[in-house]
């Protein structure tokens, strides 16, 4: 049986809002370690990988592995019914055909209970090995979101160039071009404002902004985004959770 209690419903709300436009049907695999999701978008360009570690929950038990096949659009509708500050408990039997969500308002005795029917979802699981990346950058997630939104007004593609002392984001379109250059900086008072670059090799990669627009929906999950890039392989965009992560693997675009 699964019983996982979040101190605040807002975390799961944010997670679901962050991925529901990338993938619709996905299996939430629950184990003693927490809840994981892996799913690929319909165009098979973007892979979502989520781990909500058991330490995120104020109470968590899951005796044996349980798979919850969830339609995220329906899940999002139910989860919006709860208040952000409510306790939220997910409950499921061992071979469930539904999952129960219990919201408890902390300021009153109100308890709201919803159940969502589960689906049989047949998805392949991709094996993702740890890779050495040419470059790893860490920067404020909100800045990355703004840069991508600004440049998406010009082009469908975002070019990212990384050298040891700068990160350059570029977009070239029919109406004009744009670029934003960032330099590494350490902010001691506000570490979340820092920008770091770790470089093994200089990087020049191009990505579809349509996918990046979905990735930046994870911005509210973490102050910082970690971007790991190698030339000609999928980039990893990561928002860290208190325990776990939301990762997006995005296949690059390139000239043949």
């Amino acid at each position: 049986m699964l019983e996982g209690k979040f101190e605040e419903a807002s975390l799961l709300k944010k997670v679901v809002e962050s991925i529901k436009d990338s993938v619709q049907l996905c299996n939430f695999v629950c184990s003693e370690h927490g809840i994981t999701v892996q799913a690929v978008d319909d165009s098979r360009v973007l892979l979502v990988s989520l781990l909500i570690g058991n330490e995120v929950f104020s109470d968590y038990r899951c005796d044996r592995n349980i798979t919850l096949g969830v339609d995220l659009k329906s899940f999002a509708k139910i989860i919006r019914c709860g208040g952000n500050d409510d306790y939220l408990t997910l409950i499921a039997e061992d071979s469930p055909d539904s999952v129960t969500l219990v919201f408890e308002d902390k300021n009153s005795d109100r308890i709201s209970e919803y159940s969502l029917k589960l689906m049989e979802i047949d998805n392949e699981f991709l094996k993702i090995d740890d890779m050495d990346y040419d470059s790893v950058i860490k920067m404020p997630s909100i800045d990355f979101q703004k840069i991508c939104r600004d440049l998406s007004t010009l082009s469908e593609s975002l070019q990212i160039l990384i050298t040891k002392d700068s990160i350059k984001f570029m977009a070239e379109g029919e109406t004009g071009n744009g670029s934003v250059i960032l330099k590494p900086r350490t902010d001691i008072d506000k570490p979340e404002q820092s920008i770091t670059v770790k470089l093994n090799n200089a990087v020049n990669s191009t990505f579809g902004l349509k996918y990046i627009a979905d990735i930046v929906k994870g911005t509210s999950l973490s102050n910082q985004i970690v971007i790991k890039i190698s030339n000609r392989t999928p980039a990893l965009f990561e928002y860290k959770l208190q325990s776990g992560y939301l990762r997006f693997y995005l296949a690059p675009k390139f000239e043949d």
Partner: peptide
Amino acid sequence: SPMQKKIYNYFVTS
């Protein structure tokens, strides 16, 4: 314009 690669070109099904 550049070609969009698929994620399956890089990761294998386990």
